[in-house]
Each structure stands twice: as structure tokens, then as C-alpha cells.
Design a protein around this nucleic acid. Sequence first.
DNA 1: TTACTGTTGATTCTCAGTATCAAATTCATT
DNA 2: AATGAATTTGATACTGAGAATCAACAGTAA
Lengths: 159, 159
Amino acid sequence: MKIKKFIIKGKDIIMQSAREQFFQYLARKKLRFTSQRAIIFDVFWSVDGHVSPEELYRMTKEKDRSIGQATVYRTLKLLSDAGIAREVDFSDGVTRYEPYYGQKHHDHLICQECGQSVEVVDPRIEKLQEELAWQHGFTLSGHSMYLYGYCSQCSGKQA
Amino acid sequence: MKIKKFIIKGKDIIMQSAREQFFQYLARKKLRFTSQRAIIFDVFWSVDGHVSPEELYRMTKEKDRSIGQATVYRTLKLLSDAGIAREVDFSDGVTRYEPYYGQKHHDHLICQECGQSVEVVDPRIEKLQEELAWQHGFTLSGHSMYLYGYCSQCSGKQA
DNA sequence: TTACTGTTGATTCTCAGTATCAAATTCATT
DNA sequence: AATGAATTTGATACTGAGAATCAACAGTAA
Ligand SMILES: [Mn+2]
Ligand SMILES: [Mn+2]
Ligand SMILES: [Zn+2]
Ligand SMILES: [Zn+2]
């Protein structure tokens, strides 16, 4: 109970910080923190998962009928640039976004049967990636890594 | 000279084997090794790089004016299924294909400035990926890993 | 107020990739 | 060779994600 409350409070604080960072980013770029952007941010943050622009569009519409789809796309791009959202691509044709503020970097392990995804990270891999790039004279600025397979439930059903 | 000749000969042998594997695959699936498929295969193989369907379409047209774009798309898909081509996605909006027969698995290191890509592989990373999936109860069937950064030429020009 | 800059939603557009389909080709049997 | 079934083809229409356009709108500062 206490722990859960603590966690929720923690998440809430993070949310406020992220909101603040978004605000700061906009200010720095002389852009405005409009009501639409606020709504989109809030819904996006409350989902806290891997959400496509179209999904988010549907959800924001429930809060505000008048919000346009283009604005959702635009805002997600802004959130990316501000460093509080990240694009993820599970190779199923839709680009998704996930909250990224204060979150450690992670990669994804995806079940090809049921679609569930697990967030994973291995510091040793991260280190080796850096080395690998270095060996080829590259300055590494980022990477994307997706591990595809079958989860414990689904690998039983496999042929 | 001799070495180059040997390499070319080697490549040629591989090409023949890949062609043979394509043929076998088609036979197994009761599909036909048509002239169009042969042409597309040959051009694809001669390019030996990361080529988009549209690029390949343009190139095959130079060999045979009458080949349709749909056939190129279809054939690339067949080559994928046959295990002699692989889709690659450098996150620039186009899916590319690369020959994959007899080639060791590799990942890609991409320069975000000039677009050049380097094929890389680190057995230690591959191993750790396997372990990582295992730890989460997953059976790993594949992965995609792209390292983004700036090559030695381009990192000089960086701001 | 005015002038200016950024924002919005609707709409149109683009572009990769797919679905459709009638005509053509190839294969299997007779 | 003739028949008929199965596969393949290229043209064309279509789809769906995302971007571009644009006129109306909303803050901002003088
Ligand atoms: Mn994630
Ligand atoms: Mn490659
Ligand atoms: Zn599963
Ligand atoms: Zn470069």
C-alpha cells in the first residue's frame, strides 16, 4: 500500500518534471505551450506504453473532440525532439512512441506470436556497441536493437 | 591479379549456388523459375548491396523493358522467404534488401551524415543477446541491430 | 490598436507497398 | 497436339501512414 502510493507519487513527480522539461524545451525554441499540447502530453503520459499516433489521436479526441490528427503527429515529434518521447519500431508497419523521460535507455524483446514486448537492457552489450563503432572510426550517437522471438507462453504452442 | 580473379570466381560460385537455392526453393513450393525471376535475381545479385525495390525496378527495366514493378516486389519477397535476401531498414523510409546467401549474419553501422553503412558483427554481442532473451524466458529467433553515428570523415565536420 | 509570430484543424498530397484481375504462360494428362 | 488446371504477369486501382498546405486563429510586444 505505502509502497504503491510511493510509486504513484514518484511517477507523478516524474510526470511533472517531464511536463516541465517539455515547457522548457518549447520556451527555449520560442514555441508555445498550448492547451492542445498539454492535453496530448497528458494523455500520452497516462498511457505510459508504446502508442501509435493514430491510437493517441483517438484517445485525445475523447478529451477534446476538436483536436486534429495533424496536431497529434506534430506534438509527438516535438516530444521526441524535447527528449521525453522516443520512437519505437516493432516492424509491424506502425511507428510507436514511448515516454522516455528519466527512464534509463532500454531495448525491446518482442514475442512474434502474441506481440508482447519486454523492455531489456544489458550494459555489457551497450559497452560493446560503443567499442564496435569506435573500432570503425565512428562516433556513436545512438542505436536501435530489437530482439525477436517467442515468449514462454507462446513457445510451448510452437510447431 | 590472381587473387582478384579467385575472389570473382568465388563470388560467381556463390551466385550460382544462390541461384540454385532459389530454384530449389521455388520447386519445393511448386513455383516456377520464370525468366523475369531470373533477371531480377541476376540484377539483384550483381548489385550486391543494399537496394530498394524501386531502385531494383529501375535497374531491371534496363535489362527488360517489360518487367513490372509488382513483379520486383514479389520476387524480393520470394528471395527473402528462400533465405537468400534479407530486408534491412536504415530508418530513412525505404526498405532495402541485401543478398544474404552464404553470408555470415551481420549488423549495420550507419553514418547519419553521409549515409554510408558498414557491416559489422561482434560474436560477444550476439551471445549476450541470446542470454538476455533466455533470461526472460524467450526463445530468440532473430534480431535487428543498427548503430547510428558519424563516420571519421563526417565527425570532423560536426558542430 | 496594430503588426508579427506561432498554432490549429481541415484538406490535400505523397509515396511505399498491396490487392485485384484479365491476359498470358507453363504444366500435367490425355 | 489438345485440353484444362495452376501459376505468373503487368497494368491499374487502392490503402494507409505520414507530410505539406493554407486560411483562420491566438498569443505577444510596441
Ligand atoms: Mn519501451
Ligand atoms: Mn548489410
Ligand atoms: Zn508470446
Ligand atoms: Zn559519414
